[in-house]
């Protein structure tokens, strides 16, 4: 039996039709992600990286090709591919606890007892250090905290693949760094398979095992895949002067700003 990657994006095309005009967004994307691997997708805005994530999440149908998870095709959304959305997407009328509970009840309703589900919610809130705010509503907590709760909700589904859609994009630099450290800690503890969309070069190099660089759209392709051979656990301050880190960073920057610099739409 031939070996296959854990998550496989196989010759995927995606185009959007609007009336008679058809816009090709992604062209012939092929990518394999191994179990426990942390892969970042980086590219200029509008290159279709969020579309790629939505295809893997099953929120959008592929136009051609397929997405395989453990060699089974996925074509609809499901909790095995939990998404942390860019703007947290917590339900504002539910408390922090209830937001996570909704996911836990739905995924583990028939498997775990009421007490187990409660413990599991609290365990995941603890993991992101948000247990103290369990009775607050999303409007009462900061942006970074909301993103933590969104992460807890996704982790609580015990997904096979964790999909992060620019999870730190809307946060200030200090909060972002703090949250990146949390994600690194959780990744090393749980060994999740992660696919993260980002447009932040430092973030990509710091967090990822591999960085997938996308060319500009329309019909964006994978331009280059860069391995980040940095040992884990990684420390932000030590890496700042690390030769490998700087070299990786340099490679991504060159790709983004020399070879595929952002073309302003006329």
């Amino acid at each position: 039996m031939p070996t296959y990657p854990y998550l496989k994006i196989d010759h995927v095309d995606k185009s959007f039709k609007r009336g008679s005009t058809e816009t090709e967004v992604l062209k012939d994307i092929t990518l394999g992600i191994e179990q426990g691997e942390y892969v970042s997708i980086i590219g200029h805005s509008g290159c279709g990286k969020s579309t790629l994530l939505n295809l893997v999440a099953g929120l959008l149908p592929v136009s051609a090709g397929c997405v395989l998870l453990e060699n089974k095709e996925v074509n609809e959304p499901g909790p095995d591919r939990a998404v942390v959305f860019q703007n947290h997407s917590l339900l504002p009328w539910l408390t922090v606890y209830a937001n996570v509970k909704l996911a836990v009840d739905k995924v583990f309703g028939g498997v775990k007892s009421r007490q187990e589900r409660h413990d599991w919610v609290m365990h995941n809130l603890d993991l992101v250090q948000m247990a103290h705010a369990k009775d607050k509503r999303p409007a009462e907590i900061s942006g970074g905290m909301k993103q933590r709760v969104g992460l807890a909700r996704a982790l609580a589904m015990e997904p096979k693949v964790l999909l992060l859609d620019e999870p730190f994009g809307a946060l200030d630099a200090l909060t972002r760094a703090h949250l990146q450290d949390s994600v690194m800690a959780i990744h090393s503890k749980l060994g999740n398979t992660v696919m993260m969309i980002t447009h932040d070069v430092d973030e990509a190099v710091l967090l990822s095992d591999r960085i997938v660089m996308m060319t500009n759209g329309p019909a964006a392709r994978i331009g280059e895949i860069l391995d980040v051979p940095l040992a884990r656990p990684r420390k932000r301050l030590q890496l700042a002067a690390d030769a490998t880190y700087l070299k990786c960073r340099q490679r991504v920057l060159e790709f983004l700003y020399e070879r595929h610099h952002f073309v302003e739409a006329a």
Binding site: L59, E76, P77, G78, P79, L91, A103, K106, V107
Partner: peptide
């Protein structure tokens, strides 16, 4: 209803009744 909430419901695979009670009614309240 924001597309975000629909996406959350889709990822959680809420059925029609759950979506109606837990997302639609509170969101449109």
């Amino acid at each position: 209803i924001p597309q975000d909430y629909r996406n959350v419901a889709a990822v959680l695979r809420l059925n029609h009744l759950e979506f109606f009670v837990k997302v639609m009614i509170p969101s449109a309240a």
